[in-house]
């Protein structure tokens, strides 16, 4: 899923400083699963903002709405009747949400309420970790199913750097050295030979480096499936 962290109350309060009436728009997709932009979080944020503004003696009206998804125009269209009623809309979806909203409702102001961080999953309750860099050319089968592009701090494709120590990355003591894990996995499987030889230079055109990307599925575009 796409993982995000909520922005600080201070930052959000600064965004809506001049607004008297806002809508907080949640999303039932990834941000609900990672506990940052679902119904519960929308309600908590609304109450927190109201408390802050009452304290300032500058009340704010806040309505809430949780969309099925903010990355699909058909669901974004669900707020067409009410979107004009607000000074601004604060989206708690990933970075895609407020953009789809902005594109559909050109006269409305949309604020991002979260910082979108990475593609990952929960390794335990409350902890999410990055797994994929979205490079556009998946090759994890060459690395024991573990991605060095996303998970090595230097995106090394040919083994651990000199900073790998006891399975930990030199950059952060809480980060595992993914190359240590790849090597150990191959050794345990008796397949060290998979890591002999030089892995060729990567073509980054399929990654963000080739410019903004687009996926087209012709059969769906034509609508005949």
């Amino acid at each position: 899923m796409i993982v995000a962290d909520r922005k600080s109350l201070k930052e959000i309060l600064a965004m809506v400083e001049d607004n008297k009436k806002i809508l907080i728009a949640g999303c039932k997709g990834c941000v609900t699963v990672c506990n940052v932009g679902g119904l519960k979080e929308v309600e908590i944020l609304a109450s927190s903002l109201k408390i802050a503004r009452k304290k300032q003696g500058n009340d704010i009206d806040i309505d809430i709405k949780v969309l099925e998804r903010q990355c699909d125009t058909e669901y974004v269209a669900e707020i067409s009747d009410i979107v004009g009623d607000y000074d601004a809309v604060l989206s708690l979806a990933c970075g895609v949400g407020p953009q789809f909203l902005s594109e559909m409702y050109k006269d409305q102001i949309f604020y991002p309420g979260v910082n979108t961080t990475f593609f990952g999953g929960a390794t335990r309750h409350g902890v999410w970790e990055e797994r994929c860099a979205g490079c556009g050319t998946c090759a994890i089968h060459n690395f024991g199913g573990l991605c060095p592009i996303a998970r090595c701090a230097k995106s090394l494709m040919n083994g651990p750097c000199g900073g790998s120590s006891k399975g930990i990355c030199e950059v952060n003591k809480d980060t595992e050295c993914i190359w240590d894990a790849i090597v150990k996995k191959k050794m345990e499987a008796g397949k060290l030979e998979d890591l002999i030889g030089v892995k060729g230079i990567k073509n980054w055109r399929t990654a963000r480096d080739g410019g903004p990307r687009r996926s087209i599925r012709e059969e769906l575009v034509q609508g005949n499936i």
């Binding site: 651990p160 790998s164 090597v183 050794m187 060290l192 002999i196 030889g197």
Partner: peptide, 20 residues
Amino acid sequence: NPFADPYEYRVYRLANKIEA
């Protein structure tokens, strides 16, 4: 760096550099 981990792999990494 023969002193970085995983130690058992370091000599193979050296061999890869030679192949490169």
